[in-house]
Amino acid sequence: MKKATIIATFFVFLSANLLAEPRTIERSISLTDPAKVAELDISLMSGTIAVEGYKGKTIEISVTTGSLKKLGKVKKAETSTHGKSESHSSSGRSTKGLKRITNSAIQLYIEERNNKVSIESSQKSHKINVSVKVPFNTNLELELHRGSDINVTNVHGYIDIENPRGAIVATGIKGPIVAESGRKDVTVVFDSFNPKNPSSLTAHRGVIDVTLPKKSKVNIEVKTYQGDIFSGIDAEFRSIDKVDNNKTENRQRISIGGAMAAKLNGGQQKLMLNTFRGDIYIREK
């Protein structure tokens, strides 16, 4: 007998006054099958994302909208930024006699389908801060296209994160994790290192700071074009390209170079760390 597919879709329309304070909306989503692993997929244009693992079996969502600008300020921005006459919009049409209405309606879609919870908003004009509590073993796919930071705490499923503009912080995780940031730092603290699939952290301009448990069996591959690599783990890095090795105190300082690799505790699964400009820090706990 096929299990029934339960689809619960919430359309959240938040309509705020122009001078409104930030609003918070909370929802609790039941999973189709709480015994099975859940998946959380969040895709936002702006704002922040915070996901935390907890003991429960439901998905607890809290959405806060960012505060809106006052009307006066908006008007001032209009007359100064366009650089055209006040009677024309940016598309060139006449706005004489018209008042600009700031679009205050926010659309956020929340859907649960067969244990997959999707939270989506394509709105650029407002910050939407999403905070979610999920069962520990939930798998995450998080995208924040033009927003601020993404934070993940104590989630033990696989994690995919893309954050071109903000920082990524993931602590108390097991992976595998594939996280990519554009401008800011990627900070990851593993509770334990799941060898199921490879993990990868990429920071184009920011720094990568990763902490591994002492007994992890990891093949670490590190590559940076303009950054430095700092290692505090008990494994020697061998260069794949030519580099200079300087050892000071208990740390190994490796100069700018190409790819480096080290096997921690004999190695098992790959952890790839790549930056273009930023430094890479590899720590042990």
Binding site: N139, E141, Y158, I159, D160, G175, P176, I177, V178, K196, N197, P198, S199, S200, K270
Partner: peptide, 12 residues
């Protein structure tokens, strides 16, 4: 695979 880590394993 829908997950990047799954595709990464596929590349390996």
């Amino acid at each position: 695979d829908q997950s990047a880590s799954g595709r990464l394993a596929g590349v390996s």
